[in-house]
């Protein structure tokens, strides 16, 4: 049923048009009185020091990587959850299978926990 997604496309066009016209409208109707202080990056009134694109904590990269790993594994739960009720007579088998998968996942999870990846202090 591809036609399910036609309303989504219409909504996408509407939303993009709306967002775009807001950007254009405020640009057209707003006054334009540029000033050096107004156009400089905000740093609580102090003259900006240096550029903002510095190195930042490696923790953020780690979180992004962990997210990709665990989110992909979470996606595997979805088809399993959706067929579980239909195949409930072999439910114990399904539970054991998914349990094995989750055990492998949790082993990795406790490994990163022990390694201190989840500590932010």
């Amino acid at each position: 049923m591809r036609s399910q997604y036609i309303p989504v496309l219409i909504q996408l066009a509407l939303a993009a048009g709306f967002a775009g016209s807001l950007l254009v409208l405020t640009h057209l109707f707003g006054p334009s009185r540029p000033a050096a202080a107004k156009l400089s990056p905000f740093e609580c009134g102090v003259d900006p020091v240096d550029q903002a694109h510095h190195r930042f904590s490696v923790k953020f990269y780690l979180v992004a990587m962990l997210f990709i790993l665990f989110d992909i594994e979470a996606i595997f739960f979805y088809p399993w959850a959706l067929i579980f009720k239909g195949a409930i007579s072999s439910g114990l088998f399904l539970l054991i299978e998914m349990g094995t998968f989750a055990l492998v996942l949790l082993a990795g999870f406790f490994y990163i926990w022990r390694k201190g990846v989840l500590e932010w202090a």
């Binding site: 409208l25 405020t26 707003g30 400089s40």
Partner: peptide, 9 residues
């Protein structure tokens, strides 16, 4: 809508 559309340098 009627506020200035500031785009910092």
């Amino acid at each position: 809508i009627f506020k200035e559309d500031v785009i910092p340098t």
